[in-house]
Design a protein around this nucleic acid. Structure first.
Lengths: 188, 188
DNA sequence: GTCTATATGAAGATAGAC
DNA sequence: GTCTATCTTCATATAGAC
């Protein structure tokens, strides 16, 4: 695959990322993706040898994005407490989309868990990046052995607020839970 | 549809309930259901005029089950505090399935949110039953206007633990979150 | 009233043309 | 190296047989 091909492939991955988020992996068809990219559908098999490979590429793309974001936070936000607060701002910044489609990581993980444990395990890496980041912040706050369950709890909370606010299409629920979580962080 | 037909229909609903939970609504095909029920696949359209109608019947079935369960709790458990604790025992009793397939309500709601807001709104009724029940218990505990957000928070927590413990296939995470939630209930 | 054979369309995938 | 025409499979759905 040449330079042009790599660019097109990258473009497909970015659009597939969004379509898979909004419609779900199984519901996102090549025909749909093709129209979004502006490419004939049969063409996908030049860039990806299967739908699973496309999914893997999308997950890799997400992983890379998360890594960059977390590194940026690490560099630009000095206080561990503020880094944890920054994490809680994600669902707020993405409120409209969270209400409509849920969390991109949570919904993908749940979907894959019902059809393919291997793909689900691969998608889990996204959570693991966040978990490791959050855990480091709690360790920096002197939480010692509690850092791991605390990190997990923050992930639990963020996923729960995404599911329920999306199920009820309730922006206030989302806002309230984020506020409560921030208060909880300060109380630690 | 005669007496026999109604029985068969009921049997299909019960099996479809389980298959939809384990495989997801879109992934659950008539062929798959047919084999599980022991019926030729073309037959479903005698009992349900579309897949959506089957889904509606499954949700109705779940709603009926939830209503009976909550009424039983109301009758058999005198203390509101204990009724809240009973709610938290669901994910523990269903731990194996929660780790494999997530929460039946949460995963269905998230899946439908990506394809059909109308069906998602219908499925939401399951959450509303639980929410109303939990809210009544918090009101009985004298929480007044806080009863509603407290009920929502317990739902958020339960959904979050289901998503994360399932994503990580981590029974200890589930157990720990349930313990923490019980402790939180006592602190109120 | 109950069930079966078949239609129709869309999905993922491939072989081979340009 | 890039793209297109086509294939196969399997989904939901229907018409009509028993």
């Amino acid at each position: 695959m040449g330079k042009k091909g790599a660019e097109v492939r990258q473009q497909i991955v970015e659009i597939a990322d969004e379509v898979i988020y909004q419609r779900g992996f199984h519901q996102a068809s090549f025909a749909e993706l093709a129209e979004a990219v502006g490419l004939p559908k049969g063409n996908f098999y030049y860039y990806f040898k299967s739908k699973d490979e496309l999914l893997a590429a999308v997950i890799d793309h997400r992983l890379a994005g998360i890594k960059v974001m977390l590194q940026d936070w690490q560099q630009e936000i000095p206080a561990p407490q503020d880094r944890l607060r920054r994490f809680l701002r994600i669902p707020l910044n993405e409120a409209t989309r969270v209400l409509q489609y849920g969390c991109p990581m949570g919904t993908l993980s749940m979907e894959l868990g019902k059809t393919d444990p291997v793909q689900q395990a691969y998608a889990r890496q996204m959570f693991e990046l966040f978990k490791a980041f959050l855990q480091r912040q709690f360790e920096a706050l002197g939480k010692g052995k509690e850092a791991e369950p605390l990190a997990m709890h923050l992930l639990v909370w963020s996923q729960g607020m995404a599911v329920m606010s999306s199920a009820f299409k309730d922006q206030h629920c989302l806002q309230h839970e984020i506020d409560q979580a921030n208060t909880w962080l300060e109380s630690l």
